[in-house]
Amino acid sequence: MIESTPVSVDVLVVRFDPGERTVLLGVAPRAAAPFQGKLALPGVLLRVGERLREASTRAVVTKLGLSSEALSGTGQLTTFDEPSRDPRGPTLSIALWATATSSGEGVRWYRLDAVPPLAFDHDRIVADCRPLLANRLWRDVEFTAGLMGNGFTTAQALDVTEALTGERPYPANLGRTMERVPGLRRTAEHAAALPKGGRPPSLWRWD
Rank of each mutant, 00 (worst) to 15 (best):
G151K: 13
A172D: 15
R168Y: 08
L52S: 08
W97S: 10
L45M: 15
L64R: 00
T74W: 08
D113T: 06
G146C: 04
V141G: 08
E50R: 07
A127C: 13
L164C: 00
E167C: 02
W97E: 13
D113M: 05
L52E: 08
S102I: 12
D159C: 05
K38P: 09
A98F: 04
D86S: 11
N150G: 11
R58A: 12
T74F: 07
L164D: 00
G89S: 07
E69N: 14
T99K: 06
F35L: 07
F80M: 06
D123V: 00
D113E: 07
P90H: 15
L147A: 07
I125M: 08
G73R: 00
L71E: 00
T57Y: 04
L52W: 06
G73K: 00
P42Y: 04
T153I: 13
D81V: 05
D113S: 04
L96W: 04
G166D: 11
F35R: 10
P131T: 00
V60N: 00
A145C: 06
F152P: 07
G104F: 06
G37I: 01
D128K: 10
G89I: 12
T62D: 03
V60E: 00
V44I: 12
V115A: 07
Q36T: 01
S72W: 05
L174G: 13
E142M: 09
R130Q: 06
N173G: 12
T74A: 14
R58L: 10
L147P: 06
G73S: 09
F35M: 06
S84W: 13
D113C: 02
W138E: 06
A172Y: 12
E142N: 07
V107W: 02
G43L: 01
S84D: 13
A59L: 01
Q76H: 14
R130G: 01
E69I: 03
P117G: 12
R176G: 09
S102Y: 05
L66W: 03
A98T: 02
V115Q: 06
R88N: 15
T101E: 14
R168A: 08
Q36V: 01
F143K: 04
T165K: 01
E162H: 11
T57A: 09
T165N: 05
L71W: 01
P87R: 15
E54Y: 04
V141W: 04
T79Q: 15
R85H: 13
F35I: 09
E167D: 15
R53V: 05
I125P: 00
V61S: 07
A155Q: 15
L41A: 04
L133M: 08
A119V: 02
